[in-house]
């Protein structure tokens, strides 16, 4: 049995695990189609056995309603590529997903999509991020809560655009 953590992606790994990880690059977040679940740092571990591929994912938020959708997309994607294998997808919290797990490529893609990357948070205030459209830093919080559990709403006073930002968790 071989396994590798997503964090190990830079190292030489067992070829099948490596192929599975690459395939997961093709599974996008249903609510942010610009980034893959791997770029979001949701892939915890991939295990390859003779006839089973197991993927452990970290939920971004415990109550995220997109989780079942993501599970289905991963099964669909991996079954299409590795037809001879059974695919198991589980959500684990052996380590918590944090916004620091988003890769640098993921952060760039979020910004290009119009979502500001997660920012510093302090006990009694959240520091608003720079505007993803014009880069200005005179932004303000509109709402800590947004269209999905993982996003907040901001407003840029410079280019007068509302925008979303990933919550720092």
């Amino acid at each position: 049995m071989f396994w590798m953590n997503s964090d190990d992606q830079g190292h030489a790994g067992e070829p099948l695990c490596q192929a599975v990880l690459l395939a997961l690059d093709g599974v996008s977040d249903p609510e942010i189609p610009a980034v893959s679940i791997r770029e979001l740092g949701m892939v915890h571990r991939v295990t390859a056995e003779e006839d089973v591929i197991s993927v452990e994912l970290l939920p971004t938020f415990v109550g995220c309603p997109a989780l079942e959708l993501i599970r289905g997309k991963v099964i669909e994607r991996l079954t299409a590529q590795f037809h001879a294998k059974r695919v198991n997808v589980s959500f684990v919290m052996t380590q918590p997903w944090t916004s620091q797990r988003i890769t640098s490529v993921g952060i760039e893609k979020l910004r290009a999509f119009g979502i500001a990357p997660p920012v510093r948070r302090e006990p009694r205030c959240l520091v608003p991020p720079p505007c993803p459209y014009c880069g200005a830093s005179d932004t303000r919080i509109e709402n800590l809560f947004g269209p999905t559990a993982c996003r907040s709403l901001f407003y840029c006073t410079s280019c007068q655009q509302p925008f979303e930002g990933m919550k720092a968790v």
Binding site: F61, F145, V169
Partner: peptide
């Protein structure tokens, strides 16, 4: 451990 991070908001 996970929920604590969410409760901040």
């Amino acid at each position: 451990n996970k929920m604590l991070r969410e409760e901040y908001y």
